[in-house]
Amino acid sequence: MSMKILVTVTEVAEVEDEFEVAGDDIAEQYLEYDLNEWDDYAIEEAVQISEENDDVEVVTATIGPERSEETIRMALAKGADRAVRVWDDAIESADYLDTDSKADLLAAVVEEEDPDLVLSGVQSADEANGATGVTLAEKIGFQWAAVVNDLDLDIEGGVASVHRELEGGVEELTDVESPAVLTIQSGINEPRYASLRGIRQAQQKPLDVKTIDDVGLDESVVDSPLAQTSMYEPESEGDATIWSGGPEEEAEQLAEFLRDKGVVDA
């Protein structure tokens, strides 16, 4: 029984310790781009399923500029079979690409690919909306489960038995009917490092680039009733006393504090 898993993969921006905001975003020179941590777990989960079962294809779908191909190749190097990247000028120049627009674009890819299972990270590390996966599920008429940290897939029976990681060290055990979108929580597995062989092979794997038009939508898909009007560094609420003077002196001050406080006798 053949199966296709689609994994949504996003490139995220990480900010250096020291940075400046320029206009409505952090100045480019302080940003570094990487594969979204949660998507790394989603890729690993899909690749593990493909290794444990016959005839499973893993396809990644990304909304991102050319730069993000580095991230996509990373997913291919870890074992995904091929990739789709959606981008064009209209997306590039969109004022605010909201969850609805992203999910519309991904839904168009899903309709073309017709997967049996969609895995998505719980959230992106930079924007952290945490909503694309479930919005996508609702758009494509799939069932879903959010914040999954354990997955047992019954491919024949069409049921995904998942654990949803709730707050306070409690997990909810849920059976979800396929086809489904599962948003994957960090810690569900141990994402592999790409091997040199994997990285070499990834260069040969198909990576299709599609425009809004190619996926059968028109430019209005990027319109949004939401607009980001400002970005700023929050004023520090902190008033911590900073111990200084080098490691030895700092350790001495901390030690003295701990003794005064009575939590350490030594």
Partner: peptide, 22 residues
């Protein structure tokens, strides 16, 4: 919350409302 993330996007989609989270 974890459960909020499991239904809020569906409500937004179902009612065609713009969604802002967190």
């Amino acid at each position: 919350s974890v459960n909020g993330l499991d239904y809020a996007p569906a409500v937004a989609e179902g009612l065609s409302l713009p969604l802002v989270t967190d």
